[in-house]
Design a protein around this nucleic acid. Structure first.
Lengths: 232, 232
DNA sequence: CGATCAGTTGACAATACTCAAATACTGTGG
DNA sequence: CCACAGTATTTGAGTATTGTCAACTGATCG
């Protein structure tokens, strides 16, 4: 007996990158083990060191994955939105979560319990291949992030991020920051004060115009050069 | 007809973390698509942007995976030794290599061509699960690396690395650096001059004793504290 | 309307990088 | 086996970037 909500869950699962292209039957198996859970803004989903009993898909809302240094500084690793999976690492590495997750907005998540899920993977290689693609993709992202953190200075990382947003949002030279400036600072591996100064600097140099959380790119080539060499 | 060399390759494959526990038949399928290739010290295995037509396992020798910034600075991502796989990302993400690979020593590698390998994964869920574990493991490592690069200062990263080596080598408080100091600097996201100064500093502070590439830990607790908070 | 929090600005300090030069090491050809 | 060339490593001096601390503004929310 399948009610409307379950049907729509099956449909929705089939539209996520993780499960796209999978057979109806496999999607139904998945929805059979899935649980939809809600988290309020700022609620903790899991903490570093928690045992990984399963992983999540963002149904709606936004989730932040981050680490905290002993002296309280935070480094954001990812921001995940609808359709993105997160928390898969301990499912397969067989260990605990390596970072923290909190909801940035009121969010609904689909939780997939580890043991049930691994059993499904064991009989469905297509599922495994999709997962491998997702994890590989994420490794690639981390590669870029390490590159940015270790090789570029803050203005370079910022310029790269602005260009990334501009491309992602495909709205010409006009873009939205999508995060508070404090959060963005953490994502770029710096602090709000420095970010604030760098944004002013880019504006003073005539590369961008800032209007709160919206930014217009004035000198795209200048930004591209900055993102490349990471220096003024 | 299987000659001695092929037999030993099958055996060897079954001892790597990637293929451990797999059935004889699957291992033989793998060895059927595998090619052993040799690279001299300093030889390039692949470069960033090269199409990923397959991936590698280190049979013997040592391989460095790294990125280069436009101004020539290098950041090492991994050092891989016997048994370690590398270059899997583009196999599943379907893109090009995100970093460079060179042999640090004369090395023999096992090359597994992409298409043949994906076909094997598609019919062998155990293989897929092993791969998922490997990639998850690597994501976890990267998480730690990003943590270190963004949250800790150089002495902290260095202390953490020394403790890691000490644990890995399990030789009490005596350890080998395993890399030239220039290479180590790159792995820690800094430059040789800074590394040299920090090593002297740790010695001056009475935490370690340096004898070329060998180091004795004198004050383990001091190092642990440094690795935690990343500060003097 | 006060309180809390995000963002900005300024002064200062510290960490790590650049540049330069001296010294030690390595491997190779004679 | 030695001399030499090419690297690696170390040390010094100066500088630059970014982080810390503190004060202030402005927005948001009960």
């Amino acid at each position: 007996m399948v009610d409307e909500r379950d049907k729509s869950l099956v449909k929705w699962l089939g539209e996520t990158s993780l499960f796209v292209g999978m057979e109806e039957q496999h999607l139904r198996d998945l929805s059979g083990i899935a649980m939809v859970v809600s988290y309020k803004r700022r609620a903790t989903i899991f903490s570093e060191g928690d045992p990984g009993n399963g992983f999540y898909l963002v149904k709606d809302g936004k989730v932040k994955i981050f680490m905290i240094s002993p002296d309280g500084k935070e480094q954001i690793l990812h921001i995940f939105g609808p359709g993105n999976p997160f928390g898969e690492v301990p499912v397969f590495a067989g260990q605990s979560f390596p970072a923290h997750a909190v909801a940035l907005e009121n969010s609904r998540l689909v939780f997939l319990p580890r043991d049930d899920f691994v059993a499904l993977v064991g009989v469905n290689p297509a599922l495994a291949l999709n997962l491998l693609a997702t994890l590989s993709q994420r490794l690639r992202q981390f590669t870029k992030m390490i590159d940015a953190l270790s090789l570029k200075e803050v203005p370079g990382r910022l310029a790269a991020h602005l260009l990334y947003l501009s491309e992602k949002q495909a709205a010409g030279d006009y873009l939205q920051l999508e995060l508070s400036k404090t959060q963005l600072a953490s994502l770029l591996g710096t602090i709000p004060e420095t970010l604030s100064r760098m944004l002013s600097k880019l504006q003073r140099e005539g590369l961008i115009v800032i209007e709160g959380g919206s930014i217009s790119i004035v000198d795209r080539e200048g930004l591209e050069e900055l993102a490349e060499i990471g220096k003024f």
